[in-house]
Design a protein around this nucleic acid. Sequence first.
DNA 1: TGTACTGTAATAAATAAGATTACAGTATGA
DNA 2: TCATACTGTAATCTTATTTATTACAGTACA
Lengths: 135, 135
Amino acid sequence: MNGRFSISLHILTLLDRFPNELVSSEFMAGSININPVLVRKEISNLKKHGLVASKEGKAGGFMLAKPSKQIRLSDIYKAVRQTPVLGQTKNTPNPKCLVGKQIDKHLNNLFDEAEEALVKKLDKTTLSEFTNRFN
Amino acid sequence: MNGRFSISLHILTLLDRFPNELVSSEFMAGSININPVLVRKEISNLKKHGLVASKEGKAGGFMLAKPSKQIRLSDIYKAVRQTPVLGQTKNTPNPKCLVGKQIDKHLNNLFDEAEEALVKKLDKTTLSEFTNRFN
DNA sequence: TGTACTGTAATAAATAAGATTACAGTATGA
DNA sequence: TCATACTGTAATCTTATTTATTACAGTACA
């Protein structure tokens, strides 16, 4: 997922900094310095998770779906997450090997616990608190 | 880094399960189900970090550089880590944008803190404790 | 009804990860 | 001393993933 968490947080920060107005994907793409289509794709995911709302048509654009005080950074992380942070991509250790046979189970347990610690940390900060760090 | 932490842990687990003997990269590659050269590359990194020792030549192979009770999973993570888990790869937000100008700083702070929580968790378990979970 | 947006699919380009080949260097032991 | 079985590492190829781009349908406004 790497870049996606950054991008999503950037998007949500912009939306929080421009309340009461609809922000366009083009504008956000300019701030992040990526392609507008990628912004819309990323937002499509954030909408699925109830973090962003949009309005189509001429004067359309995007806004937060709820107050930034009610959005935790862990919510954003969960919305973006698709594989374990520490996890292997594909891997098929040798089942004939005593270690290979069991390692996935132990690895997954460990990764889950470590990631939980990370999520707990992100849970402590709201989007509002994060954006307040900006001058 | 994704797969590398898994691979390094797998290697170290094998070495801990076969103490008093030199394990070959070929054998480990068979257990992990990857190429032996990748194993040697990964070990080359683990050696740099003082976790693995090797012996060249005919009856050569690898062994732990110190007792597994003295190796913490956080040591392994740090040895393998090359970029922040949450961090963006390259990204150059627009410096003309108020948000773009500052976001990297805030993102990095946040990512550092979140990763620290993860490392702290890994710090609590030794390699020995991990390998003892295997039957 | 033209304009400025969102929404989404399809494709292409760039980057990163992993596999493979090749071969030099080293210790062993027959 | 020489064949053998390893490590060590560079170079290259392949594959997978990520990101960018193009294209265009749909929608709301004025």
